[in-house]
Design a protein around this nucleic acid. Structure first.
Lengths: 104, 104
DNA sequence: TGAGTATTTGAACGCATACTCATATATTAT
DNA sequence: ATAATATATGAGTATGCGTTCAAATACTCA
């Protein structure tokens, strides 16, 4: 919540802005239809197995697993294991960082 | 605003969802720190020249121009030319599509 | 016209990414 | 133990992306 009239300050802020870097990385991950679909899915089903996710988004289980890995790497999904199956969910604040940068 | 309990319907919706595809493309573009910085800049300066943008985000004019081109290709920035210099602005609804998909 | 400034363009290179396939691990059931 | 199911993993490949460089275009001013 600082004043923002000085362009020098703005330039410096752009250099080491950690939130911005994280936002870019997260957007990079969902900048792929498959992974965005997974997020979209998980907003309507609180949790889903890898097999179900793969079936719903129309890809292979392997690809879904790889995609979920990358979504987890940027803290956008979480998982819980029950017997053989692993259930994935949207992280509580999956989009918070993005929204706080591009939202109103 | 339709009911969404049937997973078959959800699967079909995921297949040809134009808004989702656009969202993925836009996220892909700002999934790069340079281009995200440009958007961030343009929220505080209503319009800026390519040279100024390049200086502020810390890159070359050529790279800024390429980046602005891609941002415009997905309707996130607009431009207006005045003599030699081209002024870029954020599009009115630059983030609307993204927000409507991932926002609350 | 010619020099100077602002921007664009296209080629080139290196690097990251998406997806597939085969294989490995883990768990359950017979 | 063996088979079956669920998921993960790593290698391989093809494609796309970011950045740089050199050159082209557009406009202004002397």
């Amino acid at each position: 919540m600082s004043m923002r009239s000085n362009t020098q300050l703005l330039k410096q802020e752009l250099q080491n802005n950690k939130a911005l870097e994280l936002c870019a990385r997260q957007c990079g991950v969902i900048g792929d239809a498959t992974k965005l679909k997974i997020c979209y899915l998980l907003r309507y089903h609180s949790e889903l197995s890898v097999t179900n996710i793969a079936e719903l988004v129309g890809t292979t289980v392997s690809n879904a697993s790889h995609s979920l890995n990358k979504l987890r790497a940027v803290n956008m999904v979480t998982s819980r294991k029950d017997a053989q199956t692993v259930y994935y969910s949207l992280a509580n604040n999956a989009f918070d960082n993005i929204i706080s940068l591009i939202g109103n």
